[in-house]
Design a protein around this nucleic acid. Structure first.
Length: 324
DNA sequence: CCGATTTGACCAAA
DNA sequence: TTTGGTCAAATCGG
């Protein structure tokens, strides 16, 4: 359930400091990558097809610099949290502790009408509104119908949609498909940006505690080959060829005690190596285009998360409403 | 038939 | 009172 903090004090100050260290290491690696690109790039020498490489190379650079700034921000945020933790207490958990009694199942169990909704309150925490770690990001798609980048590897179930005052587009509400089976209380809200229909604001609440979630995320990263094999239907998405998008805001540590996922986003011809939940994988991927838009972490409770989205064969993983 | 989505209603926070 | 978030019945689709 609000799985986030249900693991209790997932992060002590120590955890956060480890996070800082991890981020710093990551920063170093990205800098190396940047240097590496500086060497090989531009002068079309080492690489090969200069003409074609040019565009990809540029995107690579853009991505790397975006990465760096994002990491910088993450580090400073993590540091401040670290300091806070050291200082004594962390703000978040307070009453928040969603040890959530919503008992095993948010709605199913509590479908006794309005009455039960308040039951959560009685138990100490209203399941409504915040208390869950929350962070947001912006995801850019390539066409109005392209929802690929919105596929973050997890399986979501839409449970509502709402017109938001002053917003041109409605906001869609999703929760983890395994909410009932595994008590995973991760949820997210997706809304198109007013100004740019290609831009989506995605707000995540809580993190996934379900095995499926973790696995599908890993699978998403792992590669299309395997994916297309297991994804039975939908030979080709309606859109013209899709890109692999790596969209991430800040990093995600699903569980500090087991491991801290470390990810190096891939761009064209870049080597990707991941470590997730103790395991690790590596792969080389061709990424025609990478959109990366990181946004503020609104409150960044105690977790941060990497989100990978692969349009390719994952489009059919789930459907978004006609708005997307 | 079962699981996902749609959509109006309900409820609590602001 | 208004608005955002959630519920749940109806509906859709595989």
């Amino acid at each position: 359930m609000e799985g986030s903090s249900s693991d209790g004090s997932r992060y002590g100050g120590a955890g956060r400091c480890a996070l800082v260290a991890e981020l710093v290491q990551m920063q170093g690696m990205v800098r190396q990558l940047e240097a590496e690109m500086g060497t090989h790039g531009g002068v079309g020498g080492g690489g090969g097809g200069a003409a074609m490489a040019a565009g990809a190379d540029e995107r690579c650079r853009a991505l790397v610099s975006g990465l760096l700034s994002s990491i910088d921000r993450s580090i400073s945020i993590a540091r401040s949290c670290c300091a806070e933790a050291a200082a004594g207490r962390l703000t978040q958990p307070a009453g928040a502790a969603p040890e959530s009694p919503p008992s095993a199942d948010g709605s199913a169990g509590s479908d006794h009408g309005a009455d039960s909704r308040c039951r959560a309150n009685a138990a100490g925490t209203c399941k409504k509104r915040k208390t869950l770690p929350k962070w947001s990001k912006q995801v850019k798609v390539r066409s109005v119908q392209d929802v690929g980048p919105l596929d973050d590897g997890f399986s979501w179930r839409k449970y509502g949609q709402k017109d938001i005052l002053g917003a041109k587009y409605p906001r869609a509400y999703f929760r983890c498909t395994h909410r009932h089976t595994q008590g995973c209380h991760a949820s997210k809200q997706v809304q198109r940006a007013d100004g740019d229909p290609l831009l989506f604001d995605v707000v995540y609440h809580g993190d996934h505690t379900c095995a499926h979630g973790a696995r599908s995320a890993a699978a998403a990263i792992d590669g299309q080959a395997a994916a297309s094999a297991e994804q039975k239907h939908q030979p080709t998405p309606p859109q013209e060829q899709n890109a692999v998008s790596v969209a991430f805001t800040s990093m995600a540590v699903v569980n500090a005690s087991t491991s801290s996922p470390f990810v190096s986003p891939a761009t064209s011809d870049c080597q990707v190596s991941y470590e997730l939940g103790g395991g690790s994988m590596a792969g080389v991927r061709n990424v025609p285009d990478v959109e990366l838009a990181s946004k503020t972490n609104s409150s960044m409770g105690d977790d941060m998360e990497f989100m990978f989205s692969l349009d390719a064969d994952f489009l059919d993983t789930y459907k978004y409403s006609s708005y997307f």
